[in-house]
């Protein structure tokens, strides 16, 4: 047997593959971060350097000052806030019912929700564009928020149902024997215990809504209404090659919020996703 101390050849091989993995997956974001800190002249310098000779951190202030990125971020936060709230309002009671009640159509509607989760939002965006137009909701935040909620409901319902399933029914029954109604059993007993699941659902909804592109891209037309994902595409269209440092800085700003949330809660989020996707 090989010694535990010192670097045996297998460990060396694993370290080598770690290095390749980190370069391939971490490299692109680091390169864009590096581009975002350059003065325009250095963007086109040859050979390129990862650490710029002048660290132009003020590029970020320029983006904030000269572009609408701040407004796009505000729009994203606003849309996400109402989406997350609305999704929980709908999905918590529904997933409780799926977890606790036996009824006709339970299996088939659960399967239906799974199908909805897998359908490309582009499919529903086509007719929604027409209704929103007819109802005067095209280009409004309330219109897109309703669709964001609908898009997130299937996934959230499945996730929360899994959480409720893992809580013993005897707890609800004990509460009901003590005089609670079904509703207060859920609110007072089951919901607090499943707080981790509800938190995880909220984080997922926030990250996925931050990335949501098709729905706002089709249902919003005026740039002052855009969330970050659509706004940055618009920003790309209006920037020239000499403003690449600003585009890079804007890209970094668009990816930092989900990355920070994700890294902060990685262990927790990974565990929940695994249990959701594998066990269901």
């Amino acid at each position: 047997m090989r010694g535990r101390k010192g670097l045996d050849s297998t460990s060396a091989f694993i370290y080598f593959s770690f290095a390749l993995i980190i370069i391939f997956f971490g490299g692109p974001a680091i390169w864009v971060f590096s581009l975002s800190l350059r003065v325009p002249a250095e963007i086109f310098a040859f050979p390129p350097r990862i650490i710029p000779s002048i660290v132009a951190w003020w590029n970020y202030m320029d983006v904030w000052r000269l572009s609408d990125m701040g407004l796009y971020m505000y729009n994203s936060f606003k849309i996400i806030f109402f989406t997350v709230f609305g999704v929980l309002l709908v999905a918590v009671p529904a997933s409780y019912a799926y977890s606790r009640f036996q009824f006709r159509g339970r299996q088939s509607t659960l399967f239906g929700l799974l199908v909805f989760q897998m359908i490309s939002p582009l499919v529903i965006a086509i007719p929604l564009y027409r209704y929103m137009d007819q109802m005067g909701l095209l280009d409004t935040h309330i219109g897109v928020i309703m669709v964001y909620i609908a898009v997130q409901i299937p996934f959230t319902t499945w996730l929360l149902k899994g959480f409720f399933d893992s809580i013993p029914r005897s707890l609800d029954e004990a509460a009901m024997i003590d005089g609670c109604s079904r509703y207060s059993a859920m609110v007072r007993v089951v919901a607090p215990i499943s707080a981790p699941g509800i938190t995880a659902a909220t984080i997922f909804n926030a990250i996925m809504s931050w990335s949501q592109f098709i729905i706002p891209f089709i249902l919003l037309t005026r740039s002052h209404n855009f969330p970050v994902a659509v706004g940055i595409l618009h920003f790309q269209d209006v920037t020239t090659e000499t403003q690449l440092h600003l585009l890079a800085a804007a890209s970094v700003m668009a990816m930092v919020p989900p990355i920070l949330i994700f890294i902060g809660l990685q262990g927790f989020v990974v565990k929940v996703l695994i249990s959701g996707a594998v066990k269901g």
Partner: peptide, 22 residues
């Protein structure tokens, strides 16, 4: 290593396109 791989998954698709374009 695991974190670096997973981070690519929470970056919005639209930004991933911009990054690779650069």
């Amino acid at each position: 290593t695991r974190t670096v791989v997973l981070v690519s998954w929470v970056i919005p698709g639209i930004v991933i396109g911009l990054i690779w374009r650069l």
